[in-house]
């Protein structure tokens, strides 16, 4: 092969200094060819595609309701008009009670949710990473998730009495398993390559958990938080509704319960709608944008 005379001695020097700029230019060209700017959808487009359809659906449901009222499917006291429910809501509003009621429930939900996060996060991490703990309580956690937390209300009242502790106990039993489950599946989905890459960089032990494992499992964790919020709110309402007592403050559940005691259907329905709206609102205003932000940052959200 030494006889192959195709290489001219000069050629070896050909690609010395000038070659560097050559490569730089070539590289810049490749980079430019392979990247593209993703454009953002204009805001009115988002409004039309995201806000209009549910608004129409709600209008349609209200119409069906109104028609059912006109058709007298149920007597007046059982099926009021949408407007009657609105009036019931406005009555409470004018009395200045609505925000207080909402605040009582929201404050409890927030405290319960934060406690649930504080318990579920380390719990989920340990269950996800330690084999024998996972074998021991993994099935229990997923089993607890399918247990309606309302079932805990009677025992909780007997253990803790009719007070906030009982309510928080029910909320925690409802929310902790689903948040823990979220972080477990988040951790399970972390590509092993990230863990190895982290270890190569020196992120081992707790550093690895902080710099790699937690951020990598964030999408699953957020999904768990979202579901944990739903469970928090549900459990709280169940607890407030069943454990109604004057010492317990006047939240949405108690408001609904009072409607029942008064046989006031518009009041009951306005309570139901407020519960629904708070539940959806927190999800829409807090968790959905957070989830989208995280997915978009990682290029996991396909813009249509």
């Amino acid at each position: 092969m030494a006889s192959t005379d195709l290489t001219k001695p000069a050629e070896a020097e050909d690609h010395a200094p000038g070659a560097r700029e050559d490569v730089a230019g070539l590289e810049a060209g490749l980079d430019a060819l392979e990247t593209y700017e993703s454009e953002r959808t204009p805001i009115w487009r988002t409004l039309v595609s995201k806000v209009l359809p549910p608004a129409l659906a709600i209008a349609f449901l209200l119409l069906v309701w109104q028609i059912a009222y006109w058709a007298e499917i149920k007597p007046d006291y059982a099926l009021p008009r949408p407007l009657d429910v609105w009036d019931a809501f406005m009555k409470t509003w004018r009395e200045g009670e609505t925000l207080d009621i909402l605040w009582v429930s929201l404050e409890r939900a927030a405290i319960g949710f934060v406690m649930a996060i504080a318990i579920a996060t380390p719990l989920g991490l340990v269950v996800a990473r330690v084999k024998w703990i996972r074998a021991a309580i993994g099935p229990l956690l997923s089993g607890l998730q399918s247990l309606p937390s309302v079932a805990w209300v009677p025992p909780a009242v007997i253990w803790f009495g009719l007070n906030n502790s009982a309510i928080y106990a029910v909320v925690l039993l409802g929310a902790v398993p689903s948040i823990a489950q979220g972080i477990i599946s988040g951790v399970d989905q972390v590509p092993p390559l990230f863990i190895r890459a982290g270890r190569v960089l020196g992120a081992t032990g707790l550093l690895g958990v902080w710099h790699v494992l937690l951020p990598a499992s964030l999408p699953g964790y957020l999904a768990g938080l979202k579901q944990g919020w739903a469970f928090t709110w549900r459990s709280l309402m169940a607890a407030e509704l069943i454990a109604a007592s004057p010492d317990l403050g006047y939240g949405l559940g108690q408001y609904l319960n009072q409607g029942r005691d008064l046989g006031d259907m518009p009041m009951m329905l306005s309570a139901v709608f407020m519960i629904l709206i708070v539940g959806i609102g927190i999800d829409l205003l807090l968790f959905s944008p957070l989830e989208k932000l995280v997915l978009r940052q990682r290029g996991l959200l396909v813009n249509k």
Binding site: L193, F194, A197, V200, V212, P215, A216, L218, Q297
Partner: peptide, 16 residues
């Protein structure tokens, strides 16, 4: 020190 290792897949962290 610790040697650096590059993989076939870039293994960059997508959250950063």
């Amino acid at each position: 020190g610790r040697p650096a290792l590059m993989f076939q897949d870039h293994a960059l962290f997508p959250w950063l």
